[in-house]
C-alpha cells in the first residue's frame, strides 16, 4: 500500500494568494509517503514514513524492539524480512549470508514498500553461525 499522510490539524490560512501558495508549499513538505509495516510475530501493523527507521517507528507505537548502536553497525536490532523491501543507508553489520537469509537492520531500515517482518531474538534462528563449524570453502565474503 502506498498512501499519503497529510499534515493534520492545520486550518485554512485565508484567501490571500501568496498565503495560499505558501500554505501549499508547506503542506507539500509536510506530506510524507508511508508504508504499512507488519510485525508478524507480534501481531501488530503500523505505518512508517519512507524516511523513518522501522525501529524508531515501532518505538513510537510503544513497541520496544532490540536496539544497541542505532547506526547499523552492530546486529543487535536484526530482524527477518518476510516480504517487502527496505533501504538501509549506512548499515554494515550484515554479511552476505545473513542478508540472503532475509535479515535487515531495523535501526537503519527505511521502508520502500509495505513490509512484513519477524522481529526480536526469536527471529535470529539463522542469523548466527559458529565459524569453526563451517568448512572454509562454504563461507561467503561480507
Amino acid at each position: 500500500m502506498r498512501c499519503l499522510r497529510p499534515c493534520e490539524g492545520r486550518g485554512r490560512r485565508g484567501r490571500n494568494p501568496r498565503a495560499i501558495q505558501a500554505a501549499l508549499r508547506l503542506a507539500e513538505t509536510l506530506v510524507a509517503v508511508t508504508h504499512k509495516v507488519t510485525l508478524r510475530n507480534r501481531g501488530v501493523t503500523f505505518h512508517v514514513a519512507e524516511d523513518e527507521p522501522i525501529y524508531a517507528a515501532a518505538l513510537r507505537e510503544g513497541i520496544q524492539l532490540p536496539i544497541a548502536c542505532n547506526y547499523g553497525g552492530c546486529i543487535t536490532c536484526a530482524a527477518k524480512m518476510l516480504s517487502g523491501k527496505v533501504r538501509q543507508p549506512k548499515g554494515t553489520a550484515l554479511n552476505r549470508r545473513q542478508s540472503q537469509a532475509g535479515y535487515i537492520l531495523l535501526c537503519v531500515a527505511l521502508p520502500v514498500t509495505d513490509c512484513e517482518i519477524d522481529v526480536g531474538v526469536e527471529s535470529h534462528d539463522q542469523l548466527y553461525q559458529n565459524p569453526f563449524a563451517v568448512a572454509p570453502g562454504a563461507r561467503l565474503r561480507r
Binding site: C69, G73, T92, A93, Y128, P131, R141, R142
Partner: peptide
C-alpha cells in the same frame, strides 16, 4: 573495529 567485531566473529574477517 567495532563494525567488525560487534556483529559477530567471522573467519573471513580474519583472513581480510
Amino acid at each position: 573495529a567495532p563494525n567488525t567485531f560487534m556483529p559477530g566473529f567471522d573467519l573471513e574477517d580474519v583472513a581480510a
